[in-house]
């Protein structure tokens, strides 16, 4: 499994994680799902609507989610995943991430500290509801992607 991003999109995601630190950020990944992997060609920041401790949890309001699905339909693209940050913790899915995860989506997780994004990983659920890591490919232009 592979997920491909244009470099500028990864930079946008990193900026979001640093802006919201020490709180978790979250957002949508839009693109296309292909047999040999998926391509993200647009991201959109979402509001963390978690009512509890946003340093440890995120939640996306259902209305914001359905608007993201509608947007994807209008643009004939696919909502392929969700990104979020783990402030001061590794970019590894937590038990809570696993409990809340839904099939199909790529879950991009970034480990962020006060000054830098330390690591970014991406994961998908398999048939047994276990997270499998997917390779992240970062390119300068989509034209170079085969």
């Amino acid at each position: 499994m592979k997920i491909t991003f244009k470099k500028s999109l990864i930079e946008q995601i990193k900026s979001h994680g640093l802006e919201t630190y020490p709180l978790e950020c979250c957002g949508f990944l839009f693109g296309k799902d292909h047999r040999n992997g998926r391509i993200v060609n647009e991201i959109r920041a979402a509001t963390n609507s978690q009512q509890g401790d946003q340093r440890r949890r995120f939640e996306i309001d259902p209305l914001e989610y359905l608007k993201a699905e509608r947007y994807a339909l209008e643009k004939d693209i696919t909502l392929v995943g969700i990104y979020h940050s783990h402030p001061d913790h590794p970019a590894i899915p937590s038990k809570h991430d696993l409990k809340q995860a839904v099939p199909f989506f790529s879950y991009l997780i970034m480990s962020v500290s006060k000054d830098e994004v330390k690591n970014i990983t991406s994961w998908q659920l398999d048939q047994r509801r276990k997270f499998i890591e997917e390779k992240i490919e970062v390119i300068n232009q989509f034209e170079t992607y085969k």
């Binding site: 440890r56 996306i60 989610y65 809570h96 809340q100």
Partner: peptide, 12 residues
């Protein structure tokens, strides 16, 4: 009509 899955997670 929209069907909306719960989207949440976090480090703990």
């Amino acid at each position: 009509i929209s069907i909306v899955p719960a989207i949440a997670g976090g480090l703990a």
